[in-house]
Amino acid sequence: MEAISVEFTKVGKRFGARAVLAAVSGTLRPGEVLVVAGPNGAGKSTLLNILAGVLRPSRGGVAYRRGDEEVPRREWFENLGMASPDMAVYEELSAIENLRFFGRLRGHALADGALAELLETLGLPVREHHRAVGTYSSGMKQRVKLAQAALHAPAVLLLDEPSSNLDAAGHEAVAALVARFRARAAVAVATNDPREIAWGDARLDLAL
């Protein structure tokens, strides 16, 4: 996997008459964690969605760069892992089945053993792996969601409030995940949690 940096320039987004984001610029560098902070409604999630390419900005642009070469938009998703509150995994499937499915889609099919190991490092015990996700607590769902984001070892990792619904042990697991990715990937974390803000090598404050 090659390092990718994400550059965003003067990104703005408007929902109807309401401007959510006004001309925000910055860069996600490989080997760095960018913390995006700011009050509720300041546009943290909106910015992450625009960086991921799932939301079209009203103005400004985003570019993925591998060295000097620009990565075409259609290849963004395969280099990207993301977890956010507006995402979910399939409730009818078990944790392992979910990861197997997303792994197959990404052409990154791991053995069930490796998937179980990933879930365990995120704090989901083996006895839960084969139950339908619909029966999980919200903290357990959050762990599956994080596993889904990390599954294919992406070059860009975007985490929106990664510790929501998690207990202290869960928070530790997220910290370990971020530390593991920091070494080789570009990571962005949107959060207001002071402990998570401390992870940042760079910080972007959004205002209302």
Binding site: A52, V54, F77, L80, M82, S84, D86, M87, A88, V89, Y90, F102, L105, R106, K145, Q148
Partner: peptide, 8 residues
């Protein structure tokens, strides 16, 4: 799940 699927 739409966004998760969209990304994958």
């Amino acid at each position: 799940t739409a966004k998760t699927l969209r990304l994958a």
